[in-house]
């Protein structure tokens, strides 16, 4: 009896041991994730909530939770000429930026995909602007487009006296110079995304189409580009959120000028919160910007997740 008991005990503890290990294995990933989850919960979602609450207060220099103004800040926001200018500029900027980047990126990717020599050399040339910060891009383009030292000046010294390109100094055109700089920066990155997509296209499909007598243009138009749908979607999401939060490029190139002609929502948020001691107005503009981003990201996530379930 005693003997069997002694034999049983280790078996039992072994079983308990295994149970503990399994429990640990089950809990370990959650434990390891917990700190980062807590940090994100606090520093991202917590502060989103904080900003939202702030936008209903009368905060000026520092957060102040003693005065509540309801939607007053939002009303003031949409009556403020600078905010209206910011929204218009955002519309112009994001539509052009996304459209031109996508078209240029796709075009470059298709050309690079023709199994040309020196692709390994050409690809990084297009991609490198992405390695620069938007601020550096902005300063470089500011100098390049400044009529008194940049392109126009150089053309004049080369003898083309009538050459004139002074958009950056003109209130109506300045926002387009920012589009130019932003497109220069990002289209290489979009190209890389499309190139990866093009490399993933099944050669069999193309060969089948060729046997059927389809021209190259037809193959691209009817088969390859439609196959790029997920890449279009990813590119759109990446570019759209870059457009909404565009700030450094504008600060470096025009700092909102001439006049208030190139204000964008992110610049508005920064200037009101920190420059004008209007923290609550800044917070309400930040909330509007966040809603804009959510309106892009949420449908994207929804379609992605639903797609995942379907496959």
């Amino acid at each position: 009896m005693t003997q069997t008991q002694a034999e049983i005990v280790p078996v039992l503890t072994q079983g308990a041991d295994r149970g503990a290990r399994e429990t640990l294995q089950e809990w370990l990933p959650k434990l390891v994730l917990a700190p980062s989850f807590a940090l994100i919960l606090l520093f991202v979602y917590g502060f989103i909530l904080f900003t939202a609450v702030l936008s209903f207060t009368g905060s000026k220099l520092l957060p102040d939770f003693s005065t509540w103004v309801g939607f007053g800040n939002y009303v003031r926001l949409f009556n403020h000429p600078n905010w209206i200018v910011s929204l218009k500029n955002l519309a112009i900027f994001s539509v052009l930026y996304i459209a031109v980047c996508t078209v240029l990126g796709l075009g470059l990717a298709i050309l690079l995909d023709q199994k040309i020599r020196g692709e390994g050399f050409l690809r990084p040339i297009y991609l490198y602007p992405m390695a620069l910060s938007f601020f550096v891009t902005g300063v470089a383009w500011k100098w390049f487009l400044d009529p008194s030292i940049g392109l126009e000046h150089v053309m004049h010294t080369w003898g083309w006296e009538s050459f004139s390109f002074r958009w950056i100094k003109e209130g109506k055109m300045a926002i387009y110079t920012i589009v130019i700089a932003a497109v220069w920066q990002s289209s290489g990155f979009v190209m890389a995304m499309f190139l990866a997509g093009l490399r993933g296209v099944d050669n069999e499909v193309i060969k089948a189409a060729q046997i059927d007598g389809a021209s190259t243009v037809m193959i691209y138009r009817r088969i390859i580009i439609p196959l790029m749908r997920p890449v279009f979607l990813s590119a759109f999401v990446v570019l759209a959120h870059l457009a909404i939060k565009s700030y450094d490029l504008v600060v470096a190139m025009t700092d909102g000028g001439p006049g208030t002609a190139t204000w964008v929502p992110a610049l508005f948020m920064q200037k009101f919160t920190f420059g004008r001691n209007e923290m609550a107005m800044g917070a309400s503009s930040a909330i509007i910007m966040m809603m804009m981003i959510f309106s892009i990201i949420v449908p994207y996530l929804y379609s992605e997740l639903r797609g995942g379930r379907r496959s």
């Binding site: 000429p81 600078n82 209130g171 000028g257 001439p258 006049g259 208030t260 002609a261 200037k271 420059g275 004008r276």
Partner: peptide, 14 residues
Amino acid sequence: NAMYDVITRHFNGE
């Protein structure tokens, strides 16, 4: 800054 906005918009012809 509210004054700045108006002054600079006027000075730039807006």
